[in-house]
Computed example of a mutant assay.
Amino acid sequence: MPVAASARDANELPPLEIRDVPDAVHSLALVLEDLDSPLGEVTHWLVWNLPPDTHRVDALHLPSEGRVGLDAFGKVGYLGPIPPEGCHRYRFRLLALDAELDLAPGATRTQFDAAAEGHVLAEADLTGALCAATPDPDASN
């Protein structure tokens, strides 16, 4: 993961390119989750009802049709990773759905998962790693 994606830095959603979406897709969804959190499943970003012709998503390009849900910390929007220690793997999951989801903005991950169940036609994953900040040994001098 780029350092700028971290909430300790710019907290900026990294650019994501979307290609080869199947023809029968009615909407796309994206989930960013921490695979190594000691807390279990930790969602850092959740968005659904993206048009199937969406080719790029980043900090400046999120289609207006997209609906953004709650992260694991109760906030709506993107919350960049902040591994507390060591290195964590963060997975972006792109879901190609056969329908738009009837969910209001601010829905929880549990509500999203229930609404998407049975509608996933295809899925793609992109995983990156980010490590906890290490103390600068010269900072105390």
Rank of each mutant, 00 (worst) to 15 (best):
A96P: 02
E123P: 10
Q111N: 07
W48S: 15
L16D: 00
D58V: 02
D53H: 13
R109Y: 14
A10R: 11
P38V: 10
D71E: 02
G106R: 08
A99I: 02
L32V: 06
C131N: 00
L94E: 00
E33D: 11
D20L: 11
L16C: 09
E100H: 06
V3W: 14
E123G: 12
A24R: 13
E65W: 07
D138N: 14
S27K: 02
D34Y: 11
E33W: 12
L60P: 12
H61M: 15
L46R: 04
V76G: 06
A104P: 04
A107D: 05
L46M: 03
S140T: 14
A114F: 13
H61G: 14
A115L: 05
I82F: 14
F73K: 08
F73E: 05
A96G: 04
I18N: 00
Y78F: 03
V68I: 10
V120W: 09
D136M: 10
N49Y: 03
L28V: 02
W48M: 12
E17H: 15
T110L: 15
A7Q: 11
C87Q: 12
H119G: 03
P105D: 02
S64N: 14
S140G: 15
P14W: 04
L97N: 01
L62Y: 08
L13R: 01
E17Q: 15
L30P: 01
L126D: 05
P14N: 02
V68Y: 06
P52C: 05
A29R: 03
E33Q: 12
A132I: 06
E33Y: 11
A107I: 06
P137T: 04
P137H: 05
D34S: 03
P38W: 03
V25D: 04
G66F: 04
N141A: 15
P15Y: 13
G77H: 03
T108I: 08
A99G: 09
